[in-house]
Amino acid sequence: MQAALQISGLKKTYKGGFQAVKGLDLEVQKGDFFALLGPNGAGKSTTIGVITSLVNKTAGTVKVFGHDIDKELDTAKSFLGLVPQEFNFNQFEAPLTILVNQAGYYGVPRQLAFERTEKYLKQLDLWDKRNEPSRNLSGGMKRRLMIARALMHEPQVLILDEPTAGVDIELRRHMWNYLRELNAEGITIILTTHYLEEAEMLCRNIAIIDQGLIVENTSMKALLAKLHVETFVLDIIPTKQTPTLAEYPSRLIDDHTFEVDVDKSQSINDVFIQLTEQGISVQSMRNKSNRLEELFLTLVANNAAPKAKGN
């Protein structure tokens, strides 16, 4: 498989000295549906900005289908379509004008640009609004306008930065379906989100970013499996016998600390039955918190209070 995107050692320090990205490595395969999940301020938009050359990087390399953005920027750019987090079109122009011009910037001749404009505006349910000044569109329509705009040069990779922020549930589902169709047609999709549910519904692979670093990079399946496991730390009275457990992955950390992984589908009673049989007594027990779980608590907290804003 060919890598659509390869990032290595990416760092970004903004003017003023704040380091938003601290040495990030990431690889996305061609055809993937990839989520970059992380809380607000994690560095998602900064990373996307560097890939799409809106942000100057401080260090590291970025390659798009093998083309280094430092050496073959124009080639790299032509593979990418960007749907940014903030609305960034001319609010006084109508969708038709915005799209035809955008196609022009990529060298799509005008006639073809008009044909594609019609195709994408119809697919995204905006054809009726084609001549309306875009400031009059609703939030969800504006978001879809930006998706159409990103598709005008028929990119290989579509990057969406929090595409469903502020979009209501029903429209969100429409958008998800549309993105799935694009992916099925072969377009590699990378989206950032701080909704775990969104990543779960859509994506095959996922990277979790926090404070400018990737903390986890795996398949969605593996991640969910991991999240279904809870680790308990048992304080035991030291004995000569090494505790062993059937069915539960476990490890002896030192002679009085024993860790047990319990899947959410398993019962914890059996742990104690087995330990009792081995003559091991447990003095106390606590949940082991790990970085990933802590992160998810913040993500879940964010999800609990989404900034809903019309459609």
């Binding site: 799409t52 050359s53 809106l54 920027l73 124009d74 080639t75 750019k77 032509s78 990418l80 960007l82 940014p84 903030e86 960034n88 079109f89 001319n90 609010q91 915005i98 011009n101 955008q102 910037y105 990529y106 060298g107 705009r149 040069h153």
Partner: peptide
Amino acid sequence: FSAKWQRNVEEMLVAPVP
């Protein structure tokens, strides 16, 4: 300036426009 202000200048910056 208005293209900077509304950020639609980014439409050109992301595209392979010299």
